[in-house]
Design a binder for these strands. Structure first.
Length: 579
DNA sequence: GCCGTTTTCGGCCCGACTGTTTTCAGTCG
């Protein structure tokens, strides 16, 4: 069982324990354990197998969880989890997913009204049985009925890129409101997380007063795509946009803006850590500022820098705030200078209408120049990818000859590399002969078929590609499509070590549905010194614009300009790939 | 269940909001 599987098991234990009314700190210990394992940059299995290593040294993992990891790896299951699954009916989990309901209320509904399905719950609401239950009432009943509609639609988090479009649209709307001093998005959107569950906007009103705050909140509520106002108080409005997506706006006093921004940016785990550090220094941090114990006057809070400074740390970039490495880096003055989209000068994965792209080679080249790129690689599919009209040797060599021909047109403006996205065949081996690959400048290898093969087999295929001297890069190394398709079972430890050994570059595919490698893998690659290329995998000229989504993920992995090869000037990059 | 520069017990981040209550529990982030 891999780390993701172990983490999922611990998360499920934590979730199920809620319904059993267990000690909340014990529940949190399982959640923390799950997170620690998910964030680990090597496999639990390999740590356990090494007698010189101790998994219990990982913060959040103790003796008990080590034993449970071992059991999961040995047997694939966990008696404690099986028992909980037997004890907790599925309907409880479904009920608790309804906004406003949690484990306690779910249990009460299920036990007192004998609810066996969400349909039972709907009927119980319609007959006022819920409203008559102690601890419930008319309003709760109404919100449950509401929530039954929404629960399904809001189950899925949206891509960061979609959240970004929405946030920009709302920003444009808010910019038309007079009386806003400052506004800033917080939450997982600001942290650049690959998916986001809601949006949080912080606003400081000009001449902060109740009237002015109200005017800003009114304007927020007038957003054209608002479908519902979920709640509105003196400082906060929550609206629903479209079917189910929630957007919160909070009014903040200017002297508290930094503390609020820090607080609402999260992550929760990061905040818990900062507040623990504060406590150790006799301080308290909340969304209003930093306070000495027992005092009412804040000693910091107007900027995030002040908040971090109060606990002796430099400002930490939002993308790093997951309670992974960032506190260790910050306290030892080793925070990475994260890569920026402006650092990118090349794009080394794109398709043309020779296969499944929509634009011609020249159109892609021109679009790359418009975007300030200095070099690109044309990497159409190879023959095995029949659906895309993949290139056989003859067509590929023809395309490469054409690139040779037009290079002079682009001389001094753009270097066009003769590339290919060559399939790694199901049986192993490359889809094009070595003597053909040898004639290209840039060969990326990727898996498209046989994605469901067992771990050993798919890992062997990728290792084979890494060992091939003509292969420069492994594209979308896990094949996952966020919310749609799980990653292939691949031993990423082995792949990264092999990449290091053979000087093979690993791709971070910037497509918002892929973002593959993910942040944890990127951190692992960086630690090993495996070079990364961030590529758009564009299938049209517009497709070149997804680069910035890849940059978000790279930043979350802690990557700097030096970790990413397509930040290199053409002269330096050319030496690297010997093109 | 984890953890330790007040260590092997007794803590574990912090506050808002809601709806239900007459002082609080549950939920959420």
């Amino acid at each position: 069982m891999d780390n993701a599987g172990i983490a999922a098991a611990f998360d499920e234990i934590a979730e199920l324990m809620e319904f059993r009314g267990e000690n909340p700190f014990r529940i949190r210990a399982y959640s923390n354990g799950a997170r620690a394992i998910r964030d680990l940059d090597e496999s639990v299995q390999s740590i356990l197998a090494d007698p010189d290593r101790d998994l219990a040294k990982v913060p959040g993992i103790g003796k008990t969880l080590v034993e449970k990891c071992q059991t999961l790896i040995d047997t694939g299951s966990l008696p404690a989890l099986e028992k909980l699954r037997d004890q907790v009916p599925d309907v409880l989990i479904q009920i608790a997913r309804i906004p406003g309901l949690g484990a306690k209320k779910a249990v009460k509904l299920q036990e007192e009204l004998n609810i066996q399905s969400l349909d039972d719950l709907r009927k119980a609401c319609q007959t006022d049985e819920v409203a008559n239950l102690k601890g419930f009432g008319k309003k709760t009943q109404a919100s449950i009925l509401d929530g039954l509609q929404i629960a399904q639609a809001s189950a899925e988090r949206i891509y960061w890129s979609d959240g970004d479009s929405l946030a920009r649209a709302i920003s444009r709307h808010m910019e038309q409101c007079e009386g806003i001093e400052t506004m800033q998005w917080a939450g997982s959107y600001r942290r650049g997380k690959e998916t986001i569950g809601d949006l949080d906007l912080l606003v400081v009103a000009e001449e902060d007063s109740p009237e002015n705050r109200n005017a800003v909140m009114d304007h927020f509520e007038s957003y054209a795509d608002r479908t519902q106002t979920i709640g509105r108080g003196e400082t906060k409005v929550s609206i629903r946009v479209g079917k189910a997506f929630q957007v919160d706006m909070r009014m903040v006093a200017p002297e508290q803006f930094g503390a609020a921004l820090q607080y609402f940016t999260g992550s929760q785990a990061h905040n818990i850590h900062t507040r623990r550090l504060a406590k150790e220094r006799g301080l308290k941090i909340n969304e209003y500022g930093v306070f000495r114990d027992g005092e009412d006057q804040p000693i910091a809070g107007s900027t995030e820098q002040d908040v971090y400074e109060a606990i002796g740390l430099p400002w930490i970039a939002p993308e790093l705030r997951e309670d992974r490495q960032e506190f260790q880096w910050a306290s030892s003055d080793q925070l990475p200078d994260l890569i920026d989209v402006d650092d990118i000068v090349g794009d080394l994965h794109m398709h043309t209408n020779a296969t499944d792209g929509t634009a011609t080679l020249r159109e892609m080249a021109d679009a790359a120049i418009e975007r300030g790129l200095k070099y690109i690689a044309i990497t159409d599919h190879s023959q095995r990818v029949t659906m895309a009209g993949g290139l056989d040797p003859d067509r590929l060599l023809e395309q490469w000859a054409m690139i040779d021909d037009i290079r002079s047109e682009y001389d001094g403006r753009l270097m066009i590399l003769k590339g290919i996205e060559c399939d790694i065949l199901e049986k192993g081996g490359m889809d094009l002969p070595d003597d053909v690959l040898a004639q290209g400048d840039w060969v990326i290898a990727s898996v498209h078929y046989g994605q469901k093969q067992p771990r050993d087999q798919i890992t062997e295929r990728i290792l084979g590609a890494i060992e091939n001297p003509h292969v420069d890069c492994i594209a979308h190394p896990t094949g996952r499509l966020i919310n749609r398709r799980p990653p292939y079972e691949v031993d990423m430890d082995a792949v990264l070590h092999a990449a290091k050994e053979h000087d093979t570059i690993m791709e971070l595919n910037a497509n918002p549905a892929r973002l593959d490698l993910n942040d944890v893998h990127l951190a692992a690659a960086k630690k090993l010194g495996v070079p990364i290329v961030i590529s758009t995998d564009a299938h049209s000229t517009d497709g070149l614009d997804v680069m910035r989504f890849g940059i978000c993920q790279a930043r979350r992995g802690g990557l700097t300009k030096d970790d990413v090869v397509n930040t290199l000037s053409w002269t330096k990059f050319r030496k690297l790939v010997k093109a």
